[in-house]
Amino acid sequence: MKNDKLSYYLQKFSILIVLAAMFLVCSCLSPYFLKTNNLMNIARQLCVGILIAYGEMILIVSGFLDLSVGSVLALSGVLAVSAYKATGSMALALLAALAVGVACNLFNALFVGNFGVPAFIATLGMQQVARGIALYYTGGANILQLGKFVNIGQGMVGILPLPVLILIGVTVVIWYMFNHTSYGRNLYAIGGNRKAAEASGINSIRSIYISYAINGLLAGLAGVIFMARNNAGLPNGAIGYEMTGLTAVIVGGTSFTGGVGTVMGTVCGAFIIGFLENIMNLLGVNSYVQSVIQGLIIVLAVAFDIRSKSKKSSKVIMAADDNAGKK
């Protein structure tokens, strides 16, 4: 009985175990890894990635995805910077970024939800469109002289960086949404079986629009933090960030086929990648070698997670067979 409980917890928290193991290994590999500043750096560096990952998670859980998030981030970021430079108002800049993020994603939702275009294709198109607009608008040049705009990316509140505080707030909201709202539960239902979810009265089109809109809000917020961190409006920034977000989500145990995923898993997934990048940079590993190691560890982490979960499901099936036999 005790063993069953232990294996249940081992399986449930397998991703946390991987993260803890990585933390221990990294601590042994470099004496600088455990320094407060370094851990704070990792958190700061992961803020943008985790915000993106939350958006991707919402979509992947409901059976969709977004390949345009890096470009939408860049577009909303440069427009926010421009809005700030034109008005001097941080609130307006933030509003502009969120509005642009949502607008781009409503287009995604329109094509995915109403026209039935596969999410991969629709968002791939938006990836090109958003990046093109960002480059066209800026002429490909960085926007400089950001003034106090940088505070949202570089500022501190007490001992905590402001982006980390924002991330904590967003995490609480996303966690609550997934676990305590009917919308959150609808996402799992749509991702698990869309037709069954619709048959049971869930409006899947509405959910798609809301999911993409939330993804847009997160991309807009991430765009503002990204540009402020870099102290420049970078139209060519965040290229490939959709993969950063997707990797964190998948490593965190979210099923690419939909219906499965947790906020804790996504945060753990992001930190596994973050620790890995950090320790390799601290050890001075060449970036090409880093790619090889990162790829292998991601595959191993996911394989471990899938294996532990498949053990769990096979045990449930065996238990069900036993019960049926007894009857």
């Binding site: 600088y32 320094k35 500043n37 370094n38 750096n41 700061r44 560096q45 961190r229 870099n230 990048e277 950090n278 940079n281 601290l282």
Partner: peptide, 9 residues
């Protein structure tokens, strides 16, 4: 930026 943040640690 990301590289330098880590290197200074």
């Amino acid at each position: 930026l990301n590289l330098m943040e880590t290197w200074v640690q």
